[in-house]
Nucleic acid binder design. Structure first.
Length: 121
DNA sequence: AAGATGACGATTG
DNA sequence: CCAATCGCCATCT
């Protein structure tokens, strides 16, 4: 499937990418937190869309972005074959993050909020 | 052009 | 937490 991007959204997408690239190793953030930081509080869905469009790019640690409770809602987009369903989970585990039932354990503790950590970015 | 979709989120029960 | 529901908005069909 070809993903079409309007000029307007390239900016938004690029901003999302910049933030995602700033997520430290072993930490995670949420779609909403990113949207919020960009002043698009109500457009968290678009952050997810941005990930979908960027997921094939390298250097974008999209696996460190989960939903507001720490659930790996995007796992389905990481599989490259039938039995690759745990790819996202494995990527996170490789960073020392514990996953259980598709959810990040201690999500609150490793949550990285751009609003606080990236104030002067 | 109109309606459905979704890597979301907040609220309510 | 679960389930239902509503708001959201670019993209897809």
């Amino acid at each position: 499937m070809i993903i079409k991007l309007s000029e307007k959204n390239k900016d938004f997408f690029n901003q999302v990418y910049l933030i995602v690239q700033e997520i430290p190793y072993g930490r995670v953030t949420s779609y909403g937190a990113i949207a919020n930081y960009l002043g698009a509080k109500k457009s968290s869905r678009m952050v997810g869309w941005a990930m979908n469009a960027s997921h094939r790019k390298e250097n974008i640690p999209a696996h460190r972005v989960v939903n507001r409770i720490g659930i790996l809602t995007g796992k389905g987009h990481f599989m490259e074959s039938e039995n690759d369903f745990d790819r996202m989970e494995n990527l996170l585990k490789a960073e020392g993050i514990v996953i259980k039932n598709d959810k990040v354990v201690d999500f609150k503790k490793i949550f990285w909020d751009p609003m606080n950590e990236l104030k002067d970015f």
